[in-house]
Design a protein around this nucleic acid. Structure first.
Lengths: 193, 193
DNA sequence: GTCTATATTTGGATAGAC
DNA sequence: GTCTATCCAAATATAGAC
């Protein structure tokens, strides 16, 4: 009766309710009307379930990132769209955020196949940013830090709210002013390390 | 033989090695040469140990934040010092960062007494920022997001390195330019929500 | 594919002697 | 305060019947 997809969906519900690390095969089996051992017909291990969840989340990220790309020639508008997507994607699901972007499950790491999806997303993000004039690797790093910081604070200190989400536009304008001012005044370069 | 402080230190070592969520009372007891039940002479429960660790970490944060405060009249210099402290404090210990600033342990939350230490730190941080000209609550939030983002990316993607740490000065300059430009051009205000 | 039954480990926590 | 002994619950995982 329960398909693999249904099990994964039930697993998401469980971790959203109890915390990512609290996934239990017993509870999971029961929630789909199975006995615990039956899960092993679908997954090799508990980490295999985490891996399937990871792959699904990474794919959602990739799909939604593509969908969020706006057709505009204005770099600032495009940057805002990307950042809105990123922060709101993260803020929408703590458990998913922890699974995809942090290392909170001792012993779990995504399989190469699942990890590749994430890497593809990152590559596309780099392309999008480059199209907005963000090509300097350091500025890409700074940009991702801003997005991550907004998402992280939103999740940690105002879950379900919008206290940091509503700062997105302002933050992107700040960042954009920063990178454009650098182009205008290349003399502000500093010593290499 | 083992004092409460020694147990907590051993607990830190364990979580640094195995992950915050992987703290085990058995292993902990063995690492200090005790039998597991003996721990209950010092702590009421496992979460009580997490709470003691939380309190210690929060106190370290408070102490180091005070020590990191520089005597200067230049707001930019002061802001850089604060941000350096914050990011480097976080980057120095993933487990501590997760315990203090994230909710990765299902079922654990700090006791009121421990949490108060964190709130005191936050209050002092707000004072420090205000002294740098960052008094608008939204700008305080943006500032903490930048610090958190740098720390988070550093920990997630370059643990032990300095890929985001070396962006701190640049990020603070960006932020400082942003808030000062706002003061200069108050017309850039936008509609309220 | 799903079940029952079970193995095995580990977990946190308690009782009570010393 | 520390120990031994034990409890109880939960965990993941396997074997084998159906």
């Amino acid at each position: 009766m329960a398909t693999r997809a249904e099990i994964i969906e039930a697993a998401w519900e469980q971790v959203r309710a109890s915390g990512l690390a609290a996934l239990s095969l017993r509870d999971l089996a029961r929630s789909v009307g199975m006995q615990p051992p039956s899960l092993y017909s679908y997954f090799d291990s508990k980490n295999d379930i985490y891996d399937a969840m990871y792959a699904q989340g990474a794919q959602q990220f990739l799909d939604e990132q593509r969908a969020a790309t706006v057709a505009t020639d204005d770099p600032l508008t495009a940057l805002k769209a990307i950042t809105h997507f990123f922060v709101e994607f993260c803020a929408a699901d703590v458990a998913r955020y922890q699974l995809l972007f942090q290392r909170t499950i001792p012993g779990f790491e995504p399989s190469p196949a699942s990890f590749k999806i994430s890497q593809d997303s990152l590559a596309e993000l780099a392309t999008l940013l480059a199209r907005c004039g963000v090509s300097d690797p350091a500025m890409v790093d700074l940009c991702t830090a801003i997005g991550t910081g907004l998402a992280d604070q939103q999740l940690s200190n105002d879950p379900g709210g919008d206290r940091w989400i509503r700062l997105i536009d302002d933050a992107v304008e700040m960042f954009y002013a920063h990178i454009t001012s650098k182009v205008d005044k290349p003399k502000r370069r500093r010593r290499a390390r």
